[in-house]
């Protein structure tokens, strides 16, 4: 045996094992996989159809209005300029693709959070669960995102479901992590107060821990949305539609015009969603309560 080579190690066919697991699932979980396919396709198509049913200019006004309400007129102005820019650029179907990406992001982010919040709560309330969940989340987030496309392609071949599932898996970890962190950060005296007045665990979670963790959970939602958006573009590779398609078209045809215009549209969507969701965090009751208010000074 020599220290200069590793011939003495047995061969571990890790990839093959994964392959076997995926094949087994494909053979045996068919009905479940079909249900997931149907549900995600219906959701995504429905939302995409709705977003594209609204006339583009009206959509710009709606999104800008939402931005103004949440953040202020300056952000609303940015939204108008950015979204009109998408419509003004000549690449074919850029606006409908943007709306499709928007739908993909929303569906993926909502499902990711629906899964992430209970897992995060479990991790926050149970040390053992936390120790198990943490490395799994690390794995999910650091595994190169493209890898998720492979088993999803096995299950659902090309289409939006493949992109959505890969996106959900990739984007979920910060949602779990920040939910756990937010709940763990809640002042233990508050939780103790709940116990001291005889509140059951669930009521403490719902009425005290979760609302107080809300600003951190919102930061998690923001992260999930941003990761979803980055993944949605990658998902364009497997025919999920959206802005990923013109981007890959641009790459494969070495067409800088299409690629840069599609890329710019992604940037506009990213900035809009990021600023919008980070402002939602500031609007939560706890964040409002922690800000000094002028009214207090007037009545004191």
């Amino acid at each position: 045996m020599s220290l200069w080579n590793s011939d003495f190690l047995p061969t571990l066919n890790v990839g093959q094992w994964f392959n076997n697991v995926v094949s087994w699932m494909n053979d045996n979980l068919g009905p479940l996989l079909n249900v997931i396919d149907d549900a995600l396709t219906t959701l995504n198509d429905g939302l995409t159809d709705f977003l594209n049913w609204v006339p583009p200019l009206i959509m710009v006004l709606l999104l800008a209005g939402l931005g103004t309400w949440v953040r202020g007129w300056l952000f609303g102005l940015f939204a108008v300029i950015g979204l009109l820019l998408i419509q003004a650029m000549p690449t074919a179907d850029l606006w409908p693709e943007a709306m499709e990406s928007f739908a993909l992001v929303l569906v993926a982010a909502v499902i990711a959070m629906i899964l992430a919040i209970p897992i995060g709560i479990l991790a926050a309330s149970n040390g053992i669960a936390s120790r198990i969940i943490r490395p799994v989340m690390d794995l999910m987030q650091t595994m190169p995102a493209y890898v998720y496309l492979v088993p999803a392609l096995f299950f659902w071949s090309v289409g939006p479901t493949t992109g959505l599932v890969a996106t959900i898996v990739f984007a979920m970890p910060p949602g779990v992590r920040l939910t756990e962190l937010g709940i763990r950060q809640v002042d233990p005296e508050m939780v103790e107060a709940g116990h001291a007045f005889g509140a059951p665990r669930r009521q403490i979670l719902r009425g005290i821990q979760f609302p107080l963790a809300m600003p951190t959970v919102m930061a998690g939602i923001n992260q999930v949305i941003m990761l979803s958006l980055s993944m949605v573009v990658i998902a364009g590779l497997v025919g999920s539609g959206g802005l990923g398609e013109p981007v890959y078209q641009g790459i494969s045809n070495l067409d800088l015009v299409t690629a840069s215009e599609a890329g710019l549209a992604v940037v506009v969507l990213a900035i809009y969603l990021d600023r919008l969701t980070s402002a939602f965090g500031d609007k939560s009751a706890v964040a409002r309560a922690s800000r000094p208010r002028k009214k207090a000074a007037a009545t004191a």
Binding site: E189, H195, A196, F197, G198, P211, L212, S284
Partner: peptide, 19 residues
């Protein structure tokens, strides 16, 4: 039930719910 009906508590750092 005892905590609810018999004993209540006041805390050093108040432990009021800010929201």
């Amino acid at each position: 039930a005892v905590r609810r009906d018999r004993i209540s508590m006041v805390f050093q750092h108040f432990a009021l719910f800010p929201h």
